[in-house]
Design a protein around this nucleic acid. Structure first.
Lengths: 245, 245
DNA sequence: CGGGAAGTTGAAGAGCGTCAAAAGTAGTGG
DNA sequence: CCACTACTTTTGACGCTCTTCAACTTCCCG
């Protein structure tokens, strides 16, 4: 399978010209890499290479041999699975610091695509596993990340199985706001780098319902739609109340 | 918070009177414990105790401090989360060999209840983490289990977000059949130790819709409803085709 | 500035939920 | 052993939310 728009060899977030690029990485602390001390970073750098993926580009497809794991350094990535007839479920959106590619099987069970120009740190799985052997703290951290993702996945199951369209959209906006906050960004205005189609496929709705629900929230003065996919949260408490947890 | 129906000190699946009970455990191979060699089992046994939970009994509640991890030895356990107004989403059913209690937070983010009399191996989290420190193979195995659960969670998101009632129920039956097979049981007749309410809360449906859909599958000669919550799968291929993946 | 993609809005319909009642099943005690 | 009770399941009628289909508008990007 061809991979478009991948630019290998790029050094994501390359810092100064000397030393490990990881040393200057602004999101290291919140990523797996934060488990390593500064003087251990060379081990990480040695097995890493940076790739850049343009908007719409594929990182990997569902079914591809799972040869790499990744860390998002910049941009945004969506994970999705397809049903045979083309129905799609987006299982997550990844932002800088997020880890990508945990797979038990020999192949990926989902696809990963860049929804805006993104940079990723790439590690071969084999090398990465060796790294884990030598750095138990890193492995423990990864287990924590996986546990965290499991909790997030359960949140999403509650949302998909038991929430109304209105509740789904409110939850989505609140979650984006909290994640932006955690990355140190402003949380009153969320930047949603995502089309209505993607939101629908993430929340288990059609684009029309997403659009109508946005309108409803706007008319209820809970949000304000701004240019360039930005949404201003006018009444966070109200949204939280609707979201339901 | 009181815990009802827990019988501590019971030795689950106790084998012979000599040596570690784990040595005789029939499901060790498919559980985390399979990562240990026979001569390492004493380390496991030392920090373990067995508990029995009656039908309907609570293993832990959402929000409880996450002090233990568990392994299901016998019976069946359901994991669930509640919305403030009482709507419930079941996030999984666990059977013998399944691991339980991975938590990134200090508290559990979901509840675990026995849906039939069950026996569990219980480990304090602190001791278990020490065990992981000393047995990297075990930690690797746990990472594999977590990855696996993540993939299962994604399956469930596809189901909840994008499948019809008919597809959901067919998927559910097929999954139960495959899991029974993996545990070495017969797979043509699945034993569903679960009420319609639980099935509904797992598939994101009401009990009425579950019931109607069972009837529809029965009339289509795909299944046969038998006494004692058993379901005979008359046409597995047909069910797989409906399930959609 | 033009063309195509993305988003909005409307009308109609389907699938599933809700409410209600009946039928089946299991557990309990005389 | 059977009657009694409580729970689970089934089935029916109706309604609502979300989807579908369609037309129109707005937003981008070259």
């Amino acid at each position: 399978m061809p991979r478009y728009n991948i630019v290998p060899g790029a050094q994501p977030r390359a810092g100064g010209s000397q030393g490990s690029p990881c040393a200057a990485c602004g999101i290291r602390e919140i990523a797996v890499c934060g488990a390593l001390q500064s003087d251990e970073l060379h081990a990480l750098t040695k097995i890493m290479d940076g790739i850049a993926v343009n908007r719409g580009g594929i990182v990997f497809y569902e079914g591809d041999p799972a040869r790499h794991v990744f860390n998002v350094a910049a941009g945004a990535v969506r994970l999705s699975r397809l049903l045979p007839d083309g129905r799609r479920q987006i299982t997550g959106f990844l932002f800088p610091g997020d880890f990508l590619g945990l797979a038990y099987d020999e192949t990926y069970t989902y696809s990963a695509e860049a929804i805006e120009r993104s940079e990723l740190c790439r590690f071969s799985r084999a090398h990465f596993e060796t790294l884990l052997d030598d750095h138990p703290r890193m492995e423990r951290r990864l287990l924590g990340i996986a546990s965290n993702e499991l909790a997030t996945a359960q949140d999403q199951m509650v949302l998909l199985g038991r929430k109304t369209a209105r509740e789904k959209l409110a939850s989505f906006l609140i979650t984006l706001s909290r994640r932006a906050e955690r990355r140190g960004q402003e949380s009153n205005t969320v930047h949603v780098p995502v089309t209505r189609t993607d939101i629908g496929d993430y929340l288990g709705l059609t684009i029309e319902t997403v659009s109508r629900t946005f309108t409803a929230l706007r008319k209820a003065k809970l949000i304000e739609l701004q240019p360039d996919h930005a949404v201003r949260l006018l009444d966070i408490e109200g949204l939280v109340a609707i979201a339901g947890d």
